[in-house]
Amino acid sequence: MNNQPSSRKLLTWFNPLGRNPGAWAFILNRLTGLGLTFYLFLHLIVLGRLAQGPQAYEEFLELTKSPLVKLGELLVIGAVIYHALNGLRVVLTSFGLGIRQQTQMFYLSVLLALVGTLVFAIRMFAG
């Protein structure tokens, strides 16, 4: 009866129920990775506006001043910081360094991502 491994079980990667901080880091790393990939495509589309002349580009830049887009940019900033720091955590643990501290390193990555996002939020919305 079907309970075997299958690539169709990909969604189980994102189920945090009953899992531990190591798996939460794994899930968050994938979510931020997918989000950043999506953002990269958006970024390329924006740059593509340059080819349509300065007016089209300026019009698009006006759109980016809306609070909703700014919120999206904050998500990108948070995702970049977390993904980068967790990447370092994975590199370190992959070579046997800090394995016993991997949970604390995950919490630190999340904390620094939140602090970094907050700093950018203050500058973006107050400025």
């Binding site: 531990n20 901080p21 190591g22 798996a23 794994f26 643990t93 992959s94």
Partner: peptide
Amino acid sequence: HSAFECTA
């Protein structure tokens, strides 16, 4: 992929 669930 370093989820550490095995050890948990």
